[in-house]
Nucleic acid binder design. Structure first.
Ligand code: ZN
Ligand code: ZN
Ligand code: ZN
Ligand code: ZN
Lengths: 153, 153
DNA sequence: TGCCCAATGCGACCGAGTCGCATTTGGGAT
DNA sequence: ATCCCAAATGCGACTCGGTCGCATTGGGCA
């Protein structure tokens, strides 16, 4: 796979899909951004800074660059943050649509569900609220022990 | 107000309610623990390390002591952690029973609701889950802009 | 009252995330 | 293709929440 390090006359493959997404979001296309985005698009579950860092360590990418781009992608609505109750923040592709997770309290594995079913309940909360007229977002994360971890005990 | 610093023959008021709670949880009773717990019991909403530190700064309490005791109280089921999507972790009295919050995205103010109404939905998720048999906890946090902040714009 | 171990103070340390600055690079204009 | 400049990156210092090990203090009990 091509690397941007090769000094001159290099035709870098930025990836078609990633290029599309970045251009569409009005974000300048660079080698590292397309790499980070490619990783994000391939990932089957929410990922952390650490995951990106490990995946791209052979490019010599700097930590700050990853943080800056994750933050940029979040602002550009390319990624969204997911709170997994771990030390670090997790991310996932924002186009995946609203959904929720079940997280294993032991191994940290994640199962995603596209269903939500919370709109009625949110309405209920607003009706009873003294201080809020409108609720624009919600997070609903479930926690348990996955089948694999349960067997191991 | 009494301080434990006064050298000798000081009758320190540990607070009846706090003493009860600590003894009940099998936790040794000290001046600072009763102060932290008193603050926690008085607090109308989830509080952070910072809140405790400010409230007790006149006692000269050390940062590490607060962290250690918040952690201890969590393990002893006196407090529970609440994730408010801020930098720092928040806490609230664990006996307050299961409930949920609406958090203002601007000023960070919080409204609590004793209702849950998610048990059915959680059941639904378990039925559809491939990797989990049982969900032991869930978090459900809502986010919006409070009436006060909305007016200011 | 005095003893012993747990609680505290203290300061070094850690790791996630940020910032300012020097260097490099993407991409539009020529 | 080349030039050029703003924007992206590397770099390392810094901030801040939180932890740790060790020396000192003070609860609780005999
Ligand atoms: Zn597991
Ligand atoms: Zn939902
Ligand atoms: Zn507000
Ligand atoms: Zn609930």
């Amino acid at each position: 796979m091509e690397k941007s390090k090769n000094k001159k006359n290099v035709r870098v493959n930025y990836g078609l899909a990633q290029k599309q997404v970045l251009a569409n979001a009005g974000v300048k296309i660079t080698f590292l951004r397309s790499k980070i985005l490619a990783f994000a698009m391939d990932s089957k579950k929410p990922f952390s800074f650490e995951d990106v860092f490990l995946a791209l360590r052979d490019t010599g990418i700097h930590r700050a660059t990853i943080f800056r781009n994750l933050s940029l992608f979040k602002d550009a609505q390319i990624l969204r943050e997911v709170d997994m109750r771990q030390d670090a923040m997790f991310y996932e592709i924002a186009t995946k649509g609203h959904h929720h997770h079940v997280v294993c309290k032991i191994c940290g594995c994640v199962e995603s569900f596209d269903m939500c079913g919370l709109d009625n309940l949110v309405e209920e909360f607003i009706k009873n609220s003294k201080e809020f007229d409108k609720i624009s977002e919600h997070s609903f994360e479930m926690f348990g022990v996955c089948k694999k971890c349960y067997k191991k005990k």
